[in-house]
Structure formats: structure tokens, C-alpha cells
């Protein structure tokens, strides 16, 4: 089982921190404006709570993630609360993307998105890969998909 690059955990935690901070600030401003309470303190509490909760979640999310290129399929495992395990046969792969968001680029990461015609196909995004690994994965999957196509069509 291949795991994600640990740096993606930092990206996720960073995102959670920013989210918690924004929410904390909103709470602080609103409380200061409308309630006779210490907005700053309440905002800080909200921030601390969210930071801890989401941060813990991201650690577990990272641990739950895994994928494997098997003989004839991609196997994915993910989910903290709902554990999801997916088998995607190569034959069914429609196309494969690599993606890099601005944050990904800062951290030197990339994602691979595997599309099938299934109704949940676009779910299969593998985040937190090194760019070389992502490109390699895309090429491998493309090759295997073309090879698999000799056996049948995608729909």
C-alpha cells in the first residue's frame, strides 16, 4: 500500500488553520458588535477548538489514505468517519489528469485524478503526490488503460 507524501498533511492542517482563523475572526467581530461579551476571547476559543478538532481530523485523514496499483485495477482506501474502499479496473478508466493547485506548488505536490464513466467516478482523486510520482502514475495508468481497452470498452 502506497501512502501519500507527509507534506500533504501539512497542507491540510494549514487549510484547517486558515479556516479556523477565519471563523474565529468572524465570531469575534460579530460578538463584539452585537453581544455584551468579550469577542476576542470567544473568537480565540472558537479558533482553538476548531484548530484542535480539524487538525486531529486531518492527521487521521492522512493515516486513512492509501492506494495501490494492482495487476488489473487501482485500489483506493480513504475516509475517517466513513471508510471507503474502491476498486477501479484499468479497463474502465476514461482519462487521467494531473493537477497542481497554487498551494500544491508551494509545497511541491501534485494530485492525480482518475475518471471513469461511473456515477461516482470523479471521486477518485489521489492527492499529495510528488510531481514526478504524479506524472509517472498518470503515464502508467494511461498505458494500462489503453492496454485494458483491448479487452473492452469504457461504457
Amino acid at each position: 500500500m502506497e501512502t501519500l507524501n507527509p507534506r500533504i498533511r501539512s497542507v491540510w492542517i494549514l487549510k484547517s488553520t486558515v479556516f479556523a482563523a477565519i471563523l474565529g475572526i468572524i465570531v469575534a467581530v460579530l460578538v463584539d458588535a452585537f453581544l455584551p461579551l468579550q469577542g476576542g476571547v470567544l473568537g480565540g476559543v472558537v479558533f482553538a477548538f476548531l484548530f484542535l478538532a480539524l487538525g486531529t481530523y486531518q492527521v487521521f485523514r492522512y493515516r486513512a489514505w492509501g492506494f495501490e496499483i494492482r495487476e488489473d485495477c487501482v485500489y483506493l482506501e480513504r475516509g475517517v468517519f466513513t471508510r471507503v474502499k474502491t476498486l477501479m479496473p484499468f479497463v474502465r478508466i476514461q482519462h487521467v489528469d494531473t493537477r497542481r493547485s497554487p498551494l500544491d506548488r508551494v509545497f511541491g505536490l501534485a494530485s492525480v485524478v482518475v475518471y471513469t464513466a461511473g456515477s461516482r467516478g470523479a471521486d477518485a482523486m489521489i492527492p499529495g503526490l510528488l510531481p514526478d510520482r504524479a506524472t509517472g502514475l498518470r503515464e502508467t495508468l494511461k498505458g494500462l488503460a489503453v492496454e485494458g481497452r483491448a479487452k473492452g470498452d469504457a461504457v
Binding site: 475516509g79 468517519f81 466513513t82 471508510r83 471507503v84 474502499k85 474502491t86 476498486l87 477501479m88 479496473p89 474502465r92 471513469t116 464513466a117 461511473g118 456515477s119 461516482r120 467516478g121 477518485a124 473492452g152 469504457a154 461504457v155
Partner: peptide, 27 residues
């Protein structure tokens, strides 16, 4: 031969009972 993906999902509550859902996804 029409199946696109085979997916199992276990929610946190299902795991307590050692149960899971299995989805055979088609196009």
C-alpha cells in the same frame, strides 16, 4: 461486464457492528 467500480463503504456506526455497504457502480 457493466460494472465500473466496486466500492465498499463503512460508516463509523457500521464499523461497531462489523457491517459494510457494497456498491457495484455502473455508468
Amino acid at each position: 461486464y457493466r460494472i465500473q467500480n466496486a466500492i465498499t463503504t463503512e460508516t463509523i456506526l457500521q464499523r461497531r457492528w462489523d457491517l459494510a455497504n457494497l456498491t457495484a457502480d455502473t455508468a
